[in-house]
């Protein structure tokens, strides 16, 4: 499997929370789309879509590759940007496995061996639970509005849907992996529809498709995120949120290595 780096996305997927901000849908009125601050506003909303002071949710992940298809059920908790914890519920073989992110460290609890190991070095680039995401995606964070130059490059209607296209290019000296990101946002509610990621050579390497927009945990959210690596046609990882609640009460101790075993 290609070890592309997919930082921003997985942070998004797993509800790794920003210390900010705005609970629920309490967004300020958007500026006019001609306003220079409009792009920043929309990208901030995208960054904070799944973020809260803390979160707890149930989700499933379907992975299809050339060699296998599998579905995992999981439960995840997060607190601030520092902590997140994901526990696998099924399949049976992997039930009980857990991944803990505490600061910049990543730990994996292995159900079969009863051991917790710290994921380091080369293993960071390896696939997470057989998906198209790698372990590194869990640790690194990118904030679109801070790490990229934003530009509204298209405004119009595609397939009966009025949309905006924002083109994001990395700011100089920012250590990001993408050469360019195109983000398609629908005009009606500023929800994301698609993101296309380009490498430094300008090659389109993967696509993230947002779907199932509905109100979950008091917010309007896309509840399915499908990542398609474009160098492997037919392959994808599809993430579906079944439930998600924000600002739940969680202690820091909850996110400890000791806790991993107890789960």
């Amino acid at each position: 499997m290609t070890a592309l780096h997919r930082r921003h996305t997985l942070a998004l997927l797993l509800g790794i929370a920003a210390t900010s901000l705005l609970p629920g849908a309490a967004w300020a009125e958007p500026p006019a789309d001609s306003d220079p601050g409009f792009a920043v506003y929309v990208m901030n909303r995208l960054d904070d879509l799944f973020r809260g002071k803390s979160s707890h949710g149930r989700s499933s992940m379907e992975v299809k590759t050339e060699h296998f298809t599998r579905t995992l059920e999981m439960e995840a908790w997060s607190k601030g940007t520092e902590y997140s914890l994901i526990r696998i519920l099924s399949p049976k073989k992997e039930a009980g496995m857990a991944t803990l992110k505490a600061g910049n460290d990543l730990f994996s609890y292995l159900n079969k061996t009863g051991r917790t190991i710290k994921i380091t070095g080369g293993m960071l680039g390896a696939s997470w639970m057989g998906s198209h995401f790698d372990n590194d995606d869990l640790v690194r964070e990118t904030r679109l509005s801070e790490d990229y130059e934003l530009a509204l490059t298209y405004k119009g209607t595609v397939a009966d849907e009025p949309i905006y296209v924002f083109t994001l290019t990395p700011k100089p000296d920012t250590p990001v992996v993408w050469g360019k990101i195109e983000t398609v946002i629908r005009q009606s509610d500023l929800m994301p529809l698609r993101q296309a990621f380009y490498d430094e050579e300008g090659e389109r390497v993967r696509e993230l498709i947002f779907g199932g927009h509905r109100i979950v945990g008091g917010r309007l959210l896309p509840t399915t995120l499908t990542m398609k690596p474009l160098d492997a046609p037919g392959e994808y990882t599809k993430f579906t949120y079944h439930s998600l609640e924000f600002d739940v009460d969680l202690d820091d101790d909850f996110f400890s290595v000791q806790r991993l075993k107890a789960l």
């Binding site: 590759t65 060699h67 296998f68 599998r70 073989k93 496995m97 292995l110 051991r115 293993m123 390896a126």
Partner: peptide
């Protein structure tokens, strides 16, 4: 020692 990898069926291989 613990070995950890990804098995051919996509599952997480881990064993002592």
């Amino acid at each position: 020692v613990v070995l950890l990898s990804q098995a051919a069926d996509g599952s997480t291989a881990n064993a002592l």
